[in-house]
Design a protein around this nucleic acid. Structure first.
Lengths: 234, 234
DNA sequence: CGGATTGTTGAGGATACTCAAGTTAGGTGG
DNA sequence: CCACCTAACTTGAGTATCCTCAACAATCCG
């Protein structure tokens, strides 16, 4: 049996008492994934849903023409693989560990059991869906109204917020991330990302390396992402 | 007191019995809006949530730089204005009637009452949020991977599916929609939309007029939207 | 050390934007 | 009912952004 302290502090399980937590955990199993391992694949029948405890995942989608896009990065505490809640039999994307990761997994059937048995859980889950929906709408707005450089700026800042830890001279993105990844988050090409980051590097805003990214001046970067920079140039 | 037959067939109220429907309706009021009326405005404190019974609404968002985008069109049966569920005190967008419309309105406080009192409602609401989230992710994928013409194609087809009624020689979009509206749905300019639609008109795919749109050949349009056309040209 | 993955940089070109000048449709008021 | 006014739309010209194609360099891993 898993220990309830594993999940006690997660938003999804807020306001559940110890008995409820134990009840929920009784149906869960824990899984370990090495960096590079695939948790589930796009199109696969969605038999389980997950909560990430440790590590970091990348959720991608492949279009029919073979173009890949990054849907989101999953951080510890996040719920993922909830295809069934969205009325889908299969996973709409592929989840890959980018760091050594640990996740709790429940059979999809447990979803209704848990929702029915614990009203607070349903409320929490709805809140999380609401946050996701807001986030998605924000990205749509970025795509609709911002040129590439600003979108890349917002993506980098989002990464720093979600997965950054402070270092001597900036905020380090704490998992390996390639220019290709950033391109797939922002709807551009790795070439354009490379050029933009090179320019930012020259301006002292970031430091980049092979799958490495350090944000040195988040404040200035925010000005670029919000279009202040471009407005001043006029 | 409103009649329960108004809402009995809506997805949001599926699997609620008559007593429950009456209970839910007891807190609701019905509102009428003329074409052009604003139901709620971006930034306003979200005091109510709504279900559209008749008509059609356009939900828009204004960016800090004054650019407007169309978030979605609301069709009869749709839930809208649920900011609170997303943990927001205010409405993130503005809802405007584009046709004479009728909506049911509940005080936001009724949300928790209804969710708590009727577990089936919570499940339905979650499903709806899931569908929205999927829809949003689809749009993100379109923005990431498709050029303007394909995005406009998908937007027009979506409109035809959601708000089209069959006419002699095609599917008519049943509310006034401008090129500017389509531009704001697809992240382009009205100029580009105008050029694209003119080209499609010449090819017999659509007929356009001032705030009018008739899809004459959805099948061919789908080929364009899915990129088959462009692929063949190579 | 060799191969593979990741990243850099340049040149050229297409797409779609901006700017600009008009036209058309529809509603309003005299 | 007609003249006018405005909002919606069309079309052209010029151009910026960003993509594609291409070649090469750096880094990592086994």
């Amino acid at each position: 049996m898993l220990d309830r302290t594993l999940i006690r502090d997660l938003a999804l399980f807020a306001r559940l008492d110890d008995a409820a937590l134990d009840d929920v955990l009784s149906e869960a199993g824990s899984q370990r994934y090495a960096a590079g391992d695939v948790v589930f694949e796009q199109g696969e029948i969605a038999e389980r849903f997950f909560v990430l405890l440790h590590g970091r995942l990348r959720v991608t989608q492949m279009t029919s023409e073979g173009q890949q896009i990054v849907i989101r990065m999953v951080a510890p505490g996040d719920l993922f693989g909830i295809a069934r809640v969205m009325q889908r039999p299969d996973y709409p994307g592929t989840a890959t560990a980018v760091l050594e990761s640990v996740a709790l997994a429940w059979p999809m059937s447990a979803w209704s059991t848990v929702v029915d048995g614990h009203p607070a859980f349903a409320v929490n889950a709805m809140q999380i869906m609401g946050e996701r929906l807001q986030e998605a709408q924000l990205r749509i707005r970025e795509f609709s109204t911002e040129a590439v450089e600003r979108r890349v700026g917002h993506a980098v800042l989002r990464l720093a917020r979600q997965s950054g830890y402070p270092e001597d001279d900036g905020v380090r993105i704490d998992f390996p991330i390639s220019k290709q990844d950033i391109a797939e988050m922002t709807g551009t090409t790795l070439h354009t990302v490379s050029r933009i980051l090179t320019a930012w590097e020259a301006a002292g805003l970031v430091s980049t390396g092979r799958q490495k990214l350090l944000v040195r001046n988040p404040h200035h970067l925010l000005l670029i992402a919000d279009g202040v920079e471009a407005a001043l140039a006029k």
